[in-house]
Design a binder for these strands. Structure first.
Lengths: 156, 156
DNA sequence: TATTGTTATACTCTATAACTATA
DNA sequence: TATAGTTATAGAGTATAACAATA
């Protein structure tokens, strides 16, 4: 299938898998840059992102970020120090801690959400609707395949 | 454009950007799992991958991996300890060190290359040629846009 | 003077294990 | 007993700064 990309970019060795890998690499760099500009690391940005859904226990954050509870302690410590979140007592479970956004944290999350929305324009702006629709259909299948593979391998 | 994915997956809030982000997330997890199975971290796997092109100076590795030369010292130390690479004297520049694959390192790189080739089947196997071609065309444009954005922002 | 790679130091993310408080 | 979060400890990746050897 080399010809697909050859035709467009004249890069004789580029395959669709290469394109996907480059997309991943570019997106990682772009996001890391955005987060750093906001004074965030990727892990802390991820945690903040999860807090969109409201105050969350550290246990739930550990599940969402797929890291151990111990890591959440450190990430929350950092975000408390930077003034983005606060720890609050859980109303019914005295073992648990709720992590909640501060006002500056909520502001930052809002700007992150706006950046996420702008990503649509960056990636797909000006693309014909039919082309975008077809792309979305195929991408949906690819994502489903990959998700199935992870489940198969017991990574899910 | 929400309807695109709604139509297929009945996930009312999923956008093409969400799909791309999930693709990135799933691929990261899949790769991290593969590398760990081979006793590698992502950073060391990346370094090994660059060595496909032959013996390489640490300076060149730093550029390829986009990290400081100091980091390369640590990564190469680890790969030397695990027996995957060796340091060799540069034939003409006595300041420089060439990093080269050992036989076990070359074997592992070969299996990584095979895994990369199999990724085509995982992601696209069974997809009609026309659909894959269209996907590759659109993905090429998306990657180009993203690359341009990074250059614009001075990240390139 | 500039470059290559190192030592020294520090920060972040990650993990496991042992522990306290609570359910 | 089980769960939520912490302290203790360790390893890996990253960075800057200062340095020695070489170009």
């Amino acid at each position: 299938m080399h010809w697909i990309v050859q035709y467009i970019h004249d890069m004789p060795e580029t395959t669709p898998v290469d394109q996907v890998m480059e997309l991943v690499s570019l997106l990682q760099r772009d996001m890391a840059h955005s987060f750093a500009r906001d004074g965030l690391t990727e892990a802390r940005a991820h945690l903040l992102w999860v807090l969109q859904d409201g105050p969350t226990t550290q246990r739930a954050l550990a599940d969402a970020l797929r890291v151990t509870p111990r890591n959440i302690t450190g990430l929350v410590d950092g975000l408390v120090a930077s003034g983005h979140v606060v720890r609050r007592a859980h109303p019914t479970d005295r073992r648990a801690t709720l992590v909640d956004l501060t006002e500056p944290g909520a502001d930052l999350l809002r700007s992150m959400t706006e950046g996420y929305a702008e990503m649509h324009e960056v990636l797909f702006g000006g693309l014909p609707d039919r082309e975008l629709a077809a792309f979305g259909r195929t991408l949906g299948r690819v994502v489903d395949r990959l998700r199935a593979r992870l489940v198969e391998e017991g990574i899910g």
